[in-house]
Design a protein around this nucleic acid. Sequence first.
DNA 1: TCTGGGGTCCTAGGCCAA
DNA 2: TCTGTTGGCCTAGGACCC
Length: 422
Amino acid sequence: MYALIDCNNFYVSCERIFNPNLSNRPVVVLSNNDGCVISRSEEAKKLGVPMGAPFYQYKNLFHKNHVKIHSSNYALYADMSERVMNILYKYTPDIEVYSIDESFLKFNGYDSFFNIELIAHQIKQEILKGVGIPTCVGFAPTKALAKVANRIAKKFPKELNGIYIIDSEKKRIKALKWLAIEDVWGIGKQLAARLRFMNINNAYDFTQLSDQYIRKEFSVVELRLKKELLGESVLKLEDIKNKKNIATTRSFEHDEKDFEFVKERIITFASVCGEKLRKQNSNANLISIFIQTNPQKETLQYRRTVVLKLPFATNSSITLAKYAIKGLEQIYKEGFAYKRAGVVVSGITDANHKQLNLFNDENSRHSQLMKTIDGLNRKIGQHKIKLAAQDLERTWKMRQEHLSKNYTTDINQIIEIDLNLA
DNA sequence: TCTGGGGTCCTAGGCCAA
DNA sequence: TCTGTTGGCCTAGGACCC
């Protein structure tokens, strides 16, 4: 059996732990730059706030309904996520941390020996008591069905208490007939529209299509999905692997025409990619740089990406920045106002197994220098030590007007309790 | 004025070598 | 030597996920 444990409205739930004022009232958490809504409390959902809603369009609605607004505080969420996952590891070592707020667990042979419902209850209770986050638990014979079970648990909180188990054919078929096609894990907007057009309206209809037809009209991904929904486990737990791509991309606070501005951003992104590579002890062989104008505006658009092959595998921020500038110079066009830019490194290899290059190789001092920079940044706070090409005067602040404190990761921001009031 | 960011996997198509 | 086929590798772009 697979279990899917999913935290309810995760970012909002994290904010609520440290701020009881947020209980039982509409709360939203915004994306970087306070751009869109990326987490909503049940009360906010009831007000009709959709996922991804642009903040500025909903400002009035929020104001009118006293919606509490928070900028995203990823340091806090990452720490709370780790606490949740640590609890899950107590139940089984077979875990796949699928995202910041959900994990698959595999319980081999538990079906006949253990009371699954009891385990589900224990998991839920322990996370709620230990971390303060409410969760939903779905159990089923495959990962895709566990997703379905979890969805049902979420949808009927009063009746099911956040737990649903698909453990019979009858329940499986009933669940699939209930699940709208666009809500199936792996069926996105485009596929759903095509399937609806073919009168395939729910997950059950989808499983009635023949293998050949699915393979011909769609792809191997959809075929696997069909098997999973039929109860044949083809998706296994994924191991924790090093990332295959590492990206650092941002929108600017305003549209920007100045080359030097964009260049400074690109250097910073390349440098951050270097840091991320070093953190997972990897090197990159390829670097791609992209810039784009604001697609929301009806002005002439420009968007280019360039991929450069690095002369040797590297994680040096200096080398990455050097090639990032080279790439930017190739794609930058005067006269456009840019809104977004980014650097992605790929072709990732293990830094311990670097292939020697006869003609080109990195200055051997880079590696020691990077170690020193990383060490200092860890000690005195993130990103205080920069490359000279980064602007030391300007501090790049995202718009984060509603940011909560780092209650659990910064000793200076730890929560204080006034015992006189308590 | 104000619309996020970071991933994965798959397919198609080009190129190249056997 | 030439031509056609096949399969591997690479990359770009699309679709999907959270």
